[in-house]
Every structure is written in C-alpha cells, then in structure tokens.
C-alpha cells in the first residue's frame, strides 16, 4: 500500500480550469457567419448570385439598352440570329441584341423584386409585430385584413395602373400597396405562437418593456422564419412583375423587363428557342440561388446549429 503511495501522486483536477477551456467566448453573428460559410455549396451559389446581380446592375450602364431603339428593324439579315461572338445571345425578331436586353430586363426585375420585398418586409414586420402582440390592435386589424384580402389583387392592380400610369414607381407602389398586409398577417401569426411562451412571461416578470420583448425575445426567434419568407418573397415578387408585365399592367414598352420579354418570345419557343429559354433560365437562376442562399442563412441564424 505504501509502495503505491510512493509511486503515484494524485493529480489535482480543477473543474474550473477545464470549463474555462471548454467554454470559449463566442458571439452570435460570428457563429452565424461561420455556420453559413461552412456550407461550401451555398457559398459558391452565393458568389455566383452576387456576380449575376452585379453584372445585371452594371452591364446596362454600358450597353444603354433601350427597348424602343431598334435600328436594325428593317434589316432582315440581322433578325433571329443565333448566339455568336458578335451577339452573345443572338438577336430577336426586330434585330435587337438579346444579351443587352436580358441584362437590362434582369436589372429592372431585380430592382423591383428587391425593392418590393424590402418595403413589404419592413412594413409587414413592424405592423405584424404590434398586431400579434396587442390584442386590442388585433381586433380591428383582423377586420382590415379581411377587407383587404377579399379585394382581388388583379382588379386593384388594373385600376391603379390605369390611374397611375405604367412605370417604375407606380409598379412598385401597386406591388406594395396591399401586399405588406399579408406579410404582417404572417408575422402576426408567428408572434402569437410564441407571445405567451413562458420565457416571455419571465421577461415580463423581470420588468422588460413590451418593445424590448418584441425586439429581443420574439424577433430573434423569427429570424429564420423571416429569412425563409424573404427567400421566397424575392423570387415571387420577380415573377409577379413578370406576370403583371405579361398582362400588360407592369412596366411599359419603354422599360426592359424579363416578363415582357418572356411573354413576347413565347411564340418563338419552337422556331428560335434561345429567345425564350435564355430569359427564362436567367430568371430561374436568380430565383433558385436566392432561395438557396436564403435557406442557408435561415439555418445559420438558429443557434442550435452552431458548434
């Protein structure tokens, strides 16, 4: 026994020291970033998307593409050309360069998609948070919602576009004037789900003001839901613009638009498929990559996925 005691000494175990090593400080946003970056595929998609967006913003500045300007309209030899080194995406039925047209259209679509989403989300989140939190506001807001959601959007869009005329600002106005209320309703439901959770009662017992409870307890919970919503909302706004332009309610002839392009080139789908497929593919690429990036951001914003 004594021999053993000579040979072995008891190593002191300091729990504090081990915890100190095991629990390094970390910040929330840094971990969000780390989790996001760890998904290599999404980072690649994100970089690709940024390149596409930047290109769509910059290229039209140099091409000065104007859909009303068609100098080759009377030159049959420059119509319906296939993709070549001179015309990367070929030319269309009146001899306009499709490459310039597509990027100019993408730029307008992106501006409308992002702009409308931004306005809708800001209005919707602010109103929805208050709406979901206060029972008094809920009583009359739900009636407003019922009225607004029962007005057919297309009817409203038609009336407004006749009153305001076609153009950039009026299209954004049309797409925001009632649509924010759907975002607000979505946020309201989400807020109501977590409003009466115990941790909010606990905050109330600690004397936390309603505003702080909304911004610190409820909205952080909703970040991933909101990110998912945004990643669906941007592509859907882009396709809404496409849809309205297709019906002739969106941007006028003087503005390049992916929607107008797609609707105009549908008839050439068999004869000159590049005219139809190139704008459609660009729209799809933008939508899908936005959705993927949004989903990845939504996942990354949940601290449970952090390690």
């Amino acid at each position: 026994m004594s021999e053993k005691n000579d040979l072995f000494t008891l190593a002191e175990f300091d729990e504090r020291e081990s915890e100190h090593i095991a629990a390094p400080r970390y910040s929330y946003w840094k971990s969000v970033w780390r989790t996001f970056v760890s998904n290599k595929f999404v980072v690649a998609v994100c970089i690709f998307m940024i390149i596409v967006v930047l290109f769509a913003m910059i290229q039209p500045m140099f091409s000065h593409y104007d859909p009303m300007y068609a100098p080759n309209i009377n030159d049959p030899s420059s119509k319906f050309l296939g993709p070549s080194s001179e015309h990367l995406f070929g030319t269309d039925n009146i001899g306009r360069d499709l490459f310039d047209a597509v990027w100019a259209g993408a730029r307008n679509s992106l501006i409308i998609g992002f702009g409308c989403t931004l306005i809708n989300m800001i209005l919707g989140i602010i109103v929805g948070a208050i709406w979901g939190f206060s029972k008094k506001v809920d009583v009359w807001m739900i009636e407003v919602y019922n009225v607004v959601s029962n007005v057919p959007f297309l009817l409203l869009a038609m009336i407004l576009s006749y009153v305001l005329g076609s153009g950039f600002k009026s299209l954004i106005f049309i797409m925001c004037v009632t649509n924010w209320i759907y975002v607000a309703y979505f946020i309201r439901t989400q807020v109501m789900i977590i409003r009466d959770r115990e941790y909010n009662l606990a905050s109330k017992c600690l004397g936390t003001s309603t505003w702080t409870i909304i911004t610190k307890n409820i909205l952080p919970y909703l970040i991933s839901v909101i990110m998912t919503y945004i990643s669906r909302e941007i592509p859907s706004n882009i396709s809404y613009e496409v849809f309205l332009s297709y019906l002739g309610l969106g941007l006028g002839q003087q503005n390049a638009s992916l929607g107008r392009m797609i609707s105009a080139y549908t008839s050439y789908m068999t004869g000159y498929p590049h005219l139809f497929w190139i704008p459609v593919s660009l729209l799809a690429i933008i939508s899908v990559s936005l959705y993927l990036v949004g989903q990845a951001l939504a996942d990354a914003s949940d601290p449970r996925t952090h390690r």
Partner: peptide, 19 residues
C-alpha cells in the same frame, strides 16, 4: 417587480433561446 421574482417550472421554456 424588483421585490417579487419568480422561478419558473420549465427551465427549458422559461429562458430565451436566442439570448
């Protein structure tokens, strides 16, 4: 509020997970 405080039943539900 300062003088009366509460300890909740479910420790998982009563803490803000995002803080």
């Amino acid at each position: 509020i300062r003088s009366i405080q509460m300890i909740f039943q479910d420790p998982a539900a009563s803490l803000n997970e995002r803080a």
